[in-house]
Simulated scan of single mutants.
Amino acid sequence: MKTEALQVRKTSGKGRVTQPIPTFGDCAHQAIQKHFKKSVKYKADVLRDLDPEPLHQMRVGMRRLRTALQVFAPAITEGGSEAIAAPIENRKISKIAKELGRVRDLDVLYIWFQQYLQQTSLTPAEALELQLLLQRLQIRRGAQFAQMQRLLKSKQYRAFVSMLKGWLQHPQYTAIAQLPIQTVLPDLLLPLISELLLHPAWMVAVTVQQGTVVPQEISDLSTLNQNFYRWEPLLHDLRKQMKGVRYQTEFFMDFYGQDFRQQTREFRLIQDQLGHLQDQMVLDQFLTQDLGIDWAQKIPSLAQYFQQERWQLWQQWQAHQRQYLDSGFRKELRWSLTHLR
Rank of each mutant, 00 (worst) to 15 (best):
residue 222 S to K: 15
residue 34 K to W: 09
residue 241 Q to S: 06
residue 59 R to L: 14
residue 40 V to L: 00
residue 329 F to N: 07
residue 175 A to W: 09
residue 131 Q to Y: 05
residue 272 D to Q: 13
residue 247 Y to A: 11
residue 287 L to G: 00
residue 251 F to T: 07
residue 292 G to E: 04
residue 271 Q to P: 04
residue 314 W to T: 02
residue 299 I to S: 03
residue 169 Q to D: 12
residue 23 T to I: 05
residue 183 T to Y: 02
residue 328 G to V: 03
residue 227 N to P: 00
residue 303 A to D: 05
residue 35 H to L: 08
residue 144 Q to H: 12
residue 192 L to F: 00
residue 157 Y to S: 00
residue 56 H to E: 15
residue 296 A to I: 11
residue 98 K to I: 09
residue 234 L to K: 12
residue 258 Q to F: 09
residue 237 D to N: 12
residue 259 D to V: 10
residue 105 D to V: 09
residue 124 P to E: 04
residue 280 Q to C: 10
residue 80 G to N: 14
residue 155 K to F: 00
residue 83 A to P: 01
residue 260 F to L: 03
residue 42 Y to C: 03
residue 17 V to G: 04
residue 80 G to D: 14
residue 21 I to C: 14
residue 174 T to G: 12
residue 54 P to L: 03
residue 202 W to K: 09
residue 14 K to A: 13
residue 130 L to V: 09
residue 189 L to I: 05
residue 101 G to A: 07
residue 136 R to T: 09
residue 287 L to N: 01
residue 246 R to S: 10
residue 137 L to K: 14
residue 336 S to F: 02
residue 93 I to A: 09
residue 248 Q to I: 05
residue 34 K to G: 11
residue 57 Q to C: 13
residue 48 R to Y: 06
residue 84 I to C: 07
residue 153 K to F: 01
residue 164 L to T: 03
residue 227 N to I: 02
residue 249 T to Q: 08
residue 286 F to A: 10
residue 340 L to G: 02
residue 25 G to Q: 06
residue 261 R to K: 12
residue 114 Q to T: 15
residue 132 L to A: 08
residue 249 T to F: 13
residue 46 V to A: 05
residue 277 L to N: 02
residue 49 D to P: 02
residue 32 I to R: 03
residue 48 R to K: 15
residue 260 F to P: 01
residue 246 R to D: 06
residue 259 D to K: 09
residue 205 A to P: 00
residue 293 I to F: 10
residue 265 R to P: 03
residue 316 Q to M: 05
residue 35 H to A: 06
residue 92 K to H: 15
residue 333 L to K: 03
residue 283 L to P: 10
residue 328 G to H: 04
residue 208 V to Y: 05
residue 269 L to Q: 13
residue 17 V to C: 02
residue 234 L to R: 11
residue 139 I to A: 15
residue 113 F to T: 08
residue 247 Y to L: 08
residue 45 D to R: 12
